[in-house]
Nucleic acid binder design. Structure first.
Lengths: 160, 160
DNA sequence: GCAAACTGCTTGTAAACTGCAAGCGGAATA
DNA sequence: TATTCCGCTTGCAGTTTACAAGCAGTTTGC
């Protein structure tokens, strides 16, 4: 892996800077979609099958995702986020807040993004703990940020 | 501009998700490079001339950058960040922190990124005020975060 | 006043990446 | 045993990226 420079922002761009990587990570992280089929079927943006396969492969090579076998289904692969990917929670929060503010985002999806951003570091830490539970086998935390974000999403659907 | 979805993260990726946009914005923001020539000559990653021209055009179309004339040089164009681009400061901070932590970043450049991240919202606000001064004609703030980051960079060069 | 250098690009060309549609081998299900 | 599920792969056309070269208008140096 030859890198263009040692600048941290450039390195991040080299890993994440394309049209799909962050979107796939978003779906695993916030949608809790864990298999190829789930990711494909629930893709809001309609990701193509070859792109999804290629991105999952690249994310594994970059150390953001690992694959594990599904005990009930020999054919199915379960994708897990690594600590490196879970550490993107603050990036996702800031990027979501920025997109909500400056781009034509759907009000309902913005509600989720804004809830995550306004929760700040305490909420991000709780979410991190939940992701470690879901993806890395850490103990189950008392709080479910995914459920809270879903509640914010549904509440925004009620009063639009 | 047809967008793939109304998700804020997806929209952000559609605007910023390529191999050069964030790098160019970084150079304008942190390097204070304001002309085509400066951006080209000081590009750490060696951006090609056509890519730089194309990215500046796209960033203007997306509303992240504006062009203004240099009064002392009829030929030269000065590029300014818009409020929309200045609002990326927290994103840059988080992305830089993430890259420093998980990718093979240069210690000296990491020092800058870490200083920005650890300063947190107070430092980001001061930097935002400085960028509004440099790019939007706002009043000059008392504090120069650019100078502080440069000091962190030089300090890291002393004790490597 | 004229040549050289500066400034901000554009143009060609090859390679890589993206996006769409179709298909495919093995595993589970009816 | 036939059908559906599952995770991809393949082919192909179009777009984007990358490198190198060149170019018109402006300013500088003498």
């Amino acid at each position: 892996m030859d890198r263009r420079s040692g600048c941290p922002i450039n390195l991040s761009v080299e890993v994440l800077g394309d049209r799909w990587s962050l979107v796939v990570l978003r779906d695993i992280m916030f949608g809790n979609f864990r298999t190829y089929g789930e990711l494909h079927a629930n893709s809001l943006e309609g990701i193509a099958t070859n792109i999804l396969a290629n991105r999952l492969k690249r994310l594994m090579e970059e150390g953001l995702v690992t694959a594990s076998a599904d005990p009930t289904h020999k054919q199915r692969t379960i994708y897990n986020l690594t600590e490196m990917a879970i550490a993107l929670v603050p990036v996702m929060a800031q990027l979501g807040a920025w997109g909500s503010r400056f781009l034509p985002a759907s009000p309902q999806l913005s509600a989720r993004a804004i809830a995550l951003a306004e929760g700040g570091p305490p909420l991000w830490d709780a979410f991190t703990a939940e992701l470690r539970y879901l993806h890395l086998g850490a103990p189950k935390p008392p709080r479910s940020v995914l459920a809270e974000l879903d509640a914010a999403y549904r509440a925004a659907g009620q009063n639009p």
